[in-house]
Write a protein that binds this DNA or RNA. Structure first.
Length: 605
RNA sequence: GCCGGGGUAGCUCAACGGUAGAGCAAUCGCUUCGUAAGCGAUAGGUUGUGGGUUCGAAUCCCAUCUCCGGCUCCA
């Protein structure tokens, strides 16, 4: 039972005084109290599980009642009454038979099923007030500590997380130790909505999805296309400087290619169906670029001296993602991946892997990503269907990836069951605006496809040997990266990524000609400039430019024209006057190249 | 794909069985203005689509497409 160390009045304490252990207990206890309230209010509701999760809790119910958010006030009210009833949480060990009798008598079939799995282990019941749950514990001392909670949403969830099982109704809630923490969290959720790339992408005219074209098939509007082409040029130039060779390969291929690679067997249901051509050959849209790059490798006989061979491509591919998983630009059916396959000697694996990890860190620094972590994604050894069955190969690959991680000196978490079917990976995880973890970069070690495609190189002694493949993506797909950048910057892109970098706002019609001249000079200097010559008040033009999140506004009026200098306004509200055109171009060019987020050449706000 | 909730003008939303409306945006006038919304007028919709119930459907029912919150999946 968890007793909070500092028993300060909850209202005045801050989050730092509450341990994760306490918060978990609070949230788990809140789940129990919610289950009690729900069972009281909606007779016939059966309980299953209700754990604490990050920032809150949920409970999965099987109920004749269809829960909606309209039920929440009623449930919350009852929860409050229960919590204020000053009920202690009591744990009690029970025998298997006793527990089984108890849950069977109540018709709680999910609890009985959980219980069956616990046979032979210690079994405990936790009770508060009139409610009893089969639970391993981790609760508050008393329900009265539960004060700051809110129910958030109701959703479907498969029993035991298996889509073959029936779907239960899950109610999510959030719970905190203090009122301030709860309010802070609710505010964060509100703010996250404003950063959502689907909302900002629409407002800022970056991309659009047309129902006529189809779900998951985004259109890149001119402004989004600017960002994408910057990303593409950035990564291609960087990779070329590191010895990658960029290629182009077709997005269509004979289905046999994917049968040989194993993708057809593993992912057929997520591939667009084969197209028949004159009733003979069958073509598929590629769901992956690897086999194409393998064919490029096989186009030549390679000496060990040629390796490592780093074949890269902004490869466009098509996956029939299930309808329910599509989301804006982050989960789509047509995507272009910053892909590369490194064909190397076995003793080059480590240096190639460490170089790739360093490249990832270099790129993240350029984009200002700080909140990321490395995940060593391993197979589930019990699953012989999903993963290639070759334990020795897996052990070796895992060991090599761990060595690379420790050489680069980054910490990582291991995750079983997250590997690719052909080998383990290092995934780099970042959080989106709503706190969901997403994979951006990945590095996959593969001994399997070289085998399937019988890849070889000629070794020193003239013998044919098998190369190893490293699959890696740094900036992910252009779609996902763009979605991520929108949320990361909340649409306030640094200068180098801004679709429009400078907007010239004229005060009166008299400034039209100097404004056009200025725009021309900026464009000639390689800066992305545009004009606002509308017959609007300057306040309105500024407002519109602010809403477009344009980094630099040039307010051009009679005084500026007379003085032959410029008045500048930044989107953060900063202003500068009397700047010469030359100075502006010089500083913006510098800022553009530095990739900095906040311009430093003007006085801080 | 599954569970639940939504699709009304370019965008954000109202009307919830009785003639489909507002703000912003757009267009046209007037206004020529110094750091986040000047004024007026005009135009804009088979209420996602297809069926059904009804004297009458945006509203109720069925199917379907699509979006959102989750679940499952993610080479």
């Amino acid at each position: 039972m968890i007793k909070e160390k500092s028993q300060k009045p909850a209202e005045s304490s801050s989050s730092e005084t509450h341990s994760q252990e306490f918060l978990d207990a609070l949230r788990h206890s809140c789940a129990h109290v919610m289950a009690q309230a729900v069972q009281e209010l909606f007779p016939g509701t059966k309980i299953s599980i209700g754990p604490a999760i990050e920032n809150g809790f949920y409970y999965d119910f099987d109920s004749p009642h269809r829960f909606t958010e309209e039920d929440f006030p009623k449930v919350e009210k009852r929860m409050r009454e229960i919590a204020q009833g000053n009920h202690p949480f009591k744990g009690q060990e029970v025998s298997f038979e006793e527990a089984k009798k108890f849950w069977e008598a109540r018709g709680e079939k999910y609890k009985v099923e959980i219980l069956e799995g616990l046979k032979g282990q210690k079994i405990t019941h936790y009770c508060h007030d009139s409610y009893t749950d089969l639970c391993r514990g981790g609760h508050l001392e008393n329900t009265k500590l539960l004060r700051h909670f809110k129910l958030l949403s109701v959703a479907g969830a498969y029993w035991r997380g298996d889509e073959k099982n029936p779907m239960l109704q899950r109610i999510y809630g959030t719970a905190w130790a203090t009122k301030e923490d709860l309010e802070k969290h609710l505010k964060m959720l509100e703010e996250a909505k404003a950063r959502d790339h689907r909302k900002l992408g629409t407002e800022l005219r970056l991309f659009a999805i047309s129902e006529k074209i189809g779900p998951g098939l985004p259109l890149w509007l001119p402004k989004g296309a600017v960002i994408r082409s910057i990303l593409e040029r950035y990564i291609v130039d960087l990779e070329r400087s590191l010895g990658y060779q960029h290629v182009y390969s077709p997005a269509l291929a004979r289905v046999e290619l994917y049968k040989q690679s194993g993708h057809w067997d593993h992912f057929k249901e997520n591939m667009y169906p084969a197209m028949q051509f004159e009733n003979k050959e069958e073509l598929v849209l590629r769901p992956m670029n690897c086999p194409h790059h393998i064919m490029i490798y096989k186009n030549d006989l390679h000496s060990y001296r040629d390796l490592p061979l780093r074949i890269a491509e902004l490869g466009t591919m098509y996956r029939y993602e299930r309808s329910g998983v599509l989301s804006g630009l982050s989960r789509v059916r047509a995507m272009t991946l910053n892909d590369a396959h490194i064909f190397c000697l076995p003793d080059q694996i480590r240096s190639e892997a460490t170089a790739t990890l360093r490249l990832i860190e270099r790129v993240y620094k350029d984009f200002g990503f700080k909140n990321y972590w490395f995940r060593l994604s391993l197979r589930d050894p019990a699953d012989k269907i999903k993963y290639v069955d070759n334990p020795a190969m897996w052990d070796k690959a895992e060991r090599l990836l761990k060595e690379a991680l420790s050489e680069v000196g980054v910490s990582f978490k291991e995750a079983a069951g997250e590997a690719a079917y052909y080998g383990p990976k290092i995934d780099v995880q970042l959080h989106d605006a709503l706190g969901h973890s997403e994979t951006l970069s990945t590095l996959q070690l593969d001994f399997y496809l070289p085998e399937r495609f019988d890849l070889e190189y000629v070794d020193k002694d003239g013998a044919r040997e098998r190369p190893v493949m490293i699959h890696r993506g740094i900036v992910s797909t252009m779609e996902r990266m763009t979605a991520f950048l929108i949320e990361h910057y909340a649409g306030n892109f640094p200068l180098w990524l801004s679709p429009v970098q400078v907007k010239i706002l004229t005060l009166t019609d008299a400034e039209e000609s100097p404004a056009r001249a200025l725009e021309e000079h900026l464009l000639a200097a390689g800066l992305r400039a545009s004009l606002d010559l509308r017959a609007e008040k300057i306040g309105a033009k500024i407002r519109d430019a602010q809403l477009e999140k344009i980094p630099y506004m040039i307010i051009l009026g009679p005084k500026d024209v007379a003085a032959k200098t410029l008045s500048i306004r930044l989107r953060d509200g900063r202003q500068a006057h009397g700047i010469s055109e030359e100075k502006l171009i010089q500083e913006l060019t510098r800022e553009n190249a530095s990739k900095t987020l906040s311009p430093t050449w003007l006085d801080p706000k």
